[in-house]
Simulated scan of single mutants.
Amino acid sequence: MQTLPPVSHNALVVTARWVEQGALRYTPAGLPAVDLTLEHEGTTTEAGMARRVTFKLKAVALGPVVRQVQVVAADSLAHWSGFLAPTRNGKGVVMHVTQIEPAV
């Protein structure tokens, strides 16, 4: 049996636009939070061939990054950075956004 290294990495960067944005809410700890649906459309290479990829991804922004979300227009592409965590009900994953940068 292979043992896992003591440090693991969980990082995600996706170029996308938001297509759904929930109302501003607050966590029990008092942090501002907003739920999002991000949409990515692009082309990548897999097994030496071009592949078109389109998907939607559930995301959440907490704390100071909420201000950044509120100024990103829905039709604007941005680089969304963060990590994946289980959803509240434990059925699936959600991206926790930690940084947003405009795509140029």
Rank of each mutant, 00 (worst) to 15 (best):
L38G: 01
R25E: 07
P64Q: 14
A29V: 02
L12Q: 02
H40I: 13
S81Q: 15
Q21P: 00
H9S: 11
W18T: 02
G48R: 06
A103L: 01
T98K: 01
T45F: 08
K58F: 12
T15N: 02
P32S: 10
T27G: 05
L62E: 05
S81I: 11
V13D: 05
W18C: 01
L12Y: 04
V14N: 00
G92V: 03
E101R: 13
R51L: 15
P28F: 12
Q21A: 11
A74G: 14
S76W: 03
Q21L: 04
T27L: 08
T37R: 15
M49Y: 05
G48K: 05
A16F: 03
Y26D: 06
A59C: 13
E46L: 07
V13M: 09
Q70K: 09
R17M: 09
S81V: 11
V13F: 05
R67A: 13
T43S: 07
T54Q: 14
A73W: 04
A78E: 02
G42F: 02
F83L: 07
G30R: 04
D35T: 09
R88Y: 05
T98C: 01
W18H: 13
A11T: 06
W18I: 03
A47F: 10
T44I: 14
A47K: 12
G63I: 14
V66L: 06
G92N: 08
D35L: 08
V104Y: 03
D35H: 12
P28A: 12
W18E: 01
K58M: 12
G90K: 11
H9C: 06
A74M: 15
R51S: 12
G22K: 00
G63A: 14
P102F: 06
P32R: 08
T27R: 06
E46Y: 04
A50H: 08
V94L: 12
M95L: 15
P6S: 11
I100G: 00
A73R: 12
T44M: 13
M49C: 04
P64D: 15
K56E: 14
E46M: 04
E39Y: 08
A16Q: 01
V66H: 10
V65I: 15
A61G: 06
S8L: 10
T87N: 13
P5M: 08
A47P: 02
E39W: 05
G48V: 03
A23K: 07
K91A: 14
Q21T: 05
V14W: 00
V60C: 10
V69Y: 02
K91N: 14
V19L: 01
V72L: 14
P6R: 13
H40M: 12
H96F: 05
V97P: 00
A50I: 00
R67V: 04
A61D: 03
V69R: 00
V7R: 10
A50T: 08
V104C: 07
P32T: 09
N89F: 13
V19S: 01
R67Y: 06
A16H: 01
Q99C: 05
T44D: 12
